[in-house]
Design a protein around this nucleic acid. Structure first.
Lengths: 159, 159
DNA sequence: GTCAGTGCAAACTTTTTGCAACTAC
DNA sequence: GTAGTTGCAAAAAGTTTGCACTGAC
């Protein structure tokens, strides 16, 4: 799915959400949604705010971005990750349920990966009367970069 | 695996971790580990501190509990969940990699579930040169309780 | 016109840190 | 003895909130 299509679907879902929750369709909300979908990967709230104001020249307050990102998350068009101190976000439409996250325990880096087979296993989850919406899978371990650093360190110690 | 066995294995792993990281085996650290393993489910840092002091009569400062829980998490004997505002923790030995989490988007409740098949799929994950340690899977959706509340609400509106 | 949303700053919650005293090694 | 650890209080970081003004419906 291309980026424009993602945004279109997200806007649609967001409008429905706002309507059904009797919340208003303000320009701020849609400008923030667009900025969110302009990122290809993860971003923090601070990065989003910066992109809004400096790059997209849409003046909006931090409080409104916080408020809106919460609504977007509730609406299911944004996913929130809280691994380090600062929350990270990413678009959900055309993304969620289709990729998973590798987290390096050493450096904290987060990287995406795809796995069709795993995706199929996940879609088969049925747990009592719980209605499944989406999944978030974090695979913890050591990334290639940190592994090689540790290897070098070990070698030096052995000398 | 019974609780005592879990704690024993966790202590062992923790000792190894401390040794290899040249960190000290203080009474505080092991008292905190024991308190952690005295919980059967999730708990917050505040709950842990309360159990330490009020129930187990081991006086320790909040700062030390924060410090220690971070080390325990790094050592892989505790898992941290950051879904709401406050972090929640749970023991990892005999738990992690063997159960997954259902999160209700409505009420925020977190519940565990087991799935042998899924566990097998996860253990087959291989992604480039990333060394896999453990997994954390969150399944988001609506819990049975919230679903029935919403259903009732809908019915009332239709009357 | 009404009530929800926005912007600002202040408040709040959770977690980390600086420093002196202490203790495991 | 030395360097890591603790406890306390203070600070930081991240997020939410109160209030007056604005604007969507």
């Amino acid at each position: 799915m291309e980026t424009g299509e993602q945004l279109k679907r997200a806007s649609c879902r967001f409008e429905e959400y706002l309507q059904s929750h009797r919340q208003r369709k303000t320009p701020e909300r849609f400008a923030i949604l667009e900025a969110v979908y302009s990122f290809s990967g993860h971003f923090t709230l601070e990065e989003l705010l910066k992109r809004m104001i400096e790059e997209r020249h849409f003046i909006v307050s931090r409080a409104t971005v916080y408020n809106t990102i919460n609504i977007l998350t509730d609406a299911g068009v944004v996913v929130r990750h809280r691994l380090g101190g600062t929350a990270e976000y990413e678009k959900a439409v055309g993304m969620a349920d289709s990729h998973f996250h590798l987290i390096c325990s050493k450096c904290g880096a987060m990287k995406e990966f795809h796995d069709e087979k795993l995706l199929r296993s996940l879609s088969e989850i049925r747990v009592g009367k719980f209605t499944v919406d989406s999944y978030t899978l974090y695979v913890h371990g050591i990334c290639a970069k940190c592994a090689s650093v540790m290897k070098r360190k070990k070698k030096r110690l052995l000398k």
